[in-house]
Design a binder for these strands. Structure first.
Lengths: 227, 227
DNA sequence: CTCCTTTTGTTAGAAAAACAACATATTTAA
DNA sequence: TTAAATATGTTGTTTTTCTAACAAAAGGAG
């Protein structure tokens, strides 16, 4: 591997000196691979031995059923990881596929080499595990967040739950979401057209305003609004 | 704290000598507390500093909305943890409440004391963090599993997805689930009565057989069955 | 055993979502 | 710039879920 410029910012390598990263990466048996948009990176059913880290671009964890209905489990951008839960837990096959949301570059790290001390890299061992713990905890929080949204019974409530969360993250009633309409529908596990219709109703009711991926929440009294 | 009999089996203390646990528990600032069925253990909005470990009984993570609709995010039995993602990530308030599913006893462990080495317990430090990583990874897998179930569009598919998962776990087409009907409906985020009706239809269609919490799956060709 | 409580099953009517088909808008590429 | 491709919005119809109300069954306490 030649270029290590993106490594120091990776959460997995947090607190590790820049000069040490090259040898660490080598010791971990890490390698890079590039993918074009839509390309399959990991396939549902795979036994995951490696953690994937997004260096450039973004990936999506998707779950297609027999009828072609797609659910987006999640989306991971630069610096983010995928497959970490399954490789760390070491107990299950991947229940979803991972595909490139756009052109992207992935760093694959062998999980076992992270926990197994080796002569040249054992000084980093503890730090890696601590970083990994933090990353897993954050993923955990994100998954819980998504469950909170999609556990709502109606499309309207799923939308409002998600949008309220985004507004809180942005610290503002005006924000841009990282999804297109179809992707948002997939993420919230609802029909795109029905969701579009619901967005229109919310707009007509004066609850929000939106253009493409940009949203503005206008009212807080959602419970009081009539459908 | 007097009785340490339940501690050695805890995943968090895996690989730690039984004789060392008493001092470790003391060093971690751990303490126990008992709760009666239905009692609130952690409240949505709380800033979680401690990890909860279920010693006896079980807890449920629940999310009630303004109208009293309840979603069960998850259920944790003996040896299981709750709040770990949020305390480890250290970044969010708890977005759900935790309550006793029955009479139970909880061990609370301060997260910071786990990662901060202290004179008397630093020998266990690494092991604790490694155990914690594994636990977080498993929680991760479970959350992903639940998302897979509830991301299905119809009650029927949610049910079949869940039941197929349980059958796989049990390694048999016959198995007992840890939920009552109401709890299962809450877990799958659907209406109890509608779910009951759907179960009846599945039974009439010869796809499954059930009595209370015991299920038997009879066919694999779910996609082919007519509604 | 019997009464009482809780859980589960059933149904009809109301509400919502999915589906399908098309209109409109936006972006991309030639 | 224009044409083509993609994304978003709209609407009627069909299907499914929710709601509410009640019936039936199971479990517990006295």
């Amino acid at each position: 591997m030649k270029n290590f410029s993106l490594m120091p910012q990776l959460p997995l390598f947090a607190g590790i000196e820049e000069k040490d990263i090259a040898s660490l990466v080598k010791c971990l048996g890490a390698y890079r691979k590039s993918y074009a948009k839509g390309q399959l990176i990991l396939c549902a059913g795979d036994w995951v031995q490696e953690i994937g880290i997004v260096l450039r671009g973004a990936i999506q964890q998707v779950n297609d059923d027999a009828f072609g209905n797609r659910s987006i489990i999640g989306r991971v951008g630069p610096g983010g990881m995928f497959g970490e839960g399954f490789s760390c837990a070491g107990e299950e096959r991947l229940p979803f596929s991972v595909e490139a949301a756009g052109d992207c570059e992935i760093l694959f790290v062998n999980y076992r080499r992270m926990t197994t001390t080796c002569p040249s890299a054992c000084v980093f061992h503890n730090r890696l595990v601590e970083n990994m713990m933090l990353i897993l905890a954050r993923t955990n929080v994100q998954l819980t967040e998504k469950i909170r949204h999609i556990s709502k019974r109606s499309t309207r409530d799923k939308l409002l739950s998600y949008l309220a969360g985004e507004a809180q993250k942005a610290g503002s009633n005006e924000f841009t979401i990282p999804f297109s309409r179809q992707e948002l529908a997939d993420y919230l596990c609802v029909e795109r057209s029905a969701m579009s219709a619901e967005i229109s109703r919310l707009r007509q009711a004066g609850i929000l305003d939106t253009r493409r991926s940009h949203f503005k929440l206008l009212a807080e009294h959602h419970e009081l609004d009539v459908h």
